[in-house]
Simulated assay, not measured.
Amino acid sequence: MLCEGVAMSPSIEQLDRFVRSARAGSYSAAAQELYVSPQTVSKSVHDMEHKLNIVLFEPTGRRLRPTARGAQVLHRASEVLEGVDDIRRICGDGSLSSAAGASRLRVAVASSPLRGSVMLERDFCDFRRRCPRVALDVSFLSSGSCLSELRSGAVDAAVVPGRPGAEGLVSERVDSVELRLLVSRGHALASRKALALADLEGALLAEPYDSRWLKATVLELLSRHGVRPRMASLEMSAARHHGFLHEDGGAVLVICDGRYPEQFPDVEAVPFAEGEGMELPTYLAWRREAPAARMAALAECLRDSR
């Protein structure tokens, strides 16, 4: 038996962060999947080590490598997480719904805690009104995690930027998101009414976080127009973003969902001019075997909400 005599057990969140770190090979890569800081992930793993009184990763080397006992824990932790996903799938079939006769619909929305969300909780109000017998559960994840959860069956649908090309998925366009440039009020571009992509030439720009689609789309767009900003990689922390904007004079691409004034006071979110390609399509995706009528109703409500 592993870890005999341990008084405390790791949480599901700690197991998940440990498994993601082991599979990705670094805390930074796992943090990008979860849209948290690498320090948050490493702290979870270290807390788990303290609870279990073992070392999970080798202390040397640039890539994380499980120790012998860490590999055993990794195997068991993966099984536990698969079991949790099975429980979610069981609960999602309607037989264990909390309301008699009701069914459950789990939707993941592509989101970044600091750079905006493709949709907000309020965008689902119309569906809740039209389908009161459906227990709607909305979660906010990175778009890569949204699709992973969708493929595994942990969620029933996902709202993501860009049309998913994965086999076995159906998708329908429901909206588009507008990207704006977040800068401090003292920045040279803060007073502009609308930006051209060429304005980003040589600018200090935070690298987009969404590695599945948004990042690739933005970088390809800049490359196609011959625009070469100075890219900087930022950890997902409010303090680092605040320093980047106000002290480094940097700029951050954000989805215009209206929440940035609360997170970053004394900033401007400058729009791009029409035709610059900074409006990106948003799709509702679901597995092919999902109830078509329910997904069509959700897609219609999401379009109407915008």
Rank of each mutant, 00 (worst) to 15 (best):
S184D: 15
L253P: 11
G243N: 04
G186P: 09
C125A: 14
L200N: 05
V84R: 13
L195E: 05
F140V: 08
G5V: 04
V134A: 03
W213K: 03
L298A: 08
R20S: 13
A285C: 10
A188V: 14
K43R: 15
I54A: 01
S117N: 07
E178R: 10
V55K: 15
S237I: 01
L298T: 11
R104T: 15
R122Y: 05
P66E: 07
Q32T: 12
P271G: 07
Y283K: 03
M119T: 08
R65V: 14
C256N: 13
V36L: 09
Q32R: 15
L15F: 11
R224G: 02
V19W: 12
V155N: 05
V183A: 06
P164W: 12
A102S: 15
R129V: 10
P164T: 08
S44E: 08
G186L: 07
V227M: 08
C146T: 00
T282F: 02
E201Q: 15
V170G: 02
C91K: 07
G250M: 10
D210Q: 04
V73G: 02
S28H: 13
V19K: 13
M119L: 15
D257A: 01
R230T: 09
R17N: 09
L181S: 06
R62I: 09
S139G: 13
V107I: 13
A30E: 00
A22D: 07
G226V: 09
Q14F: 02
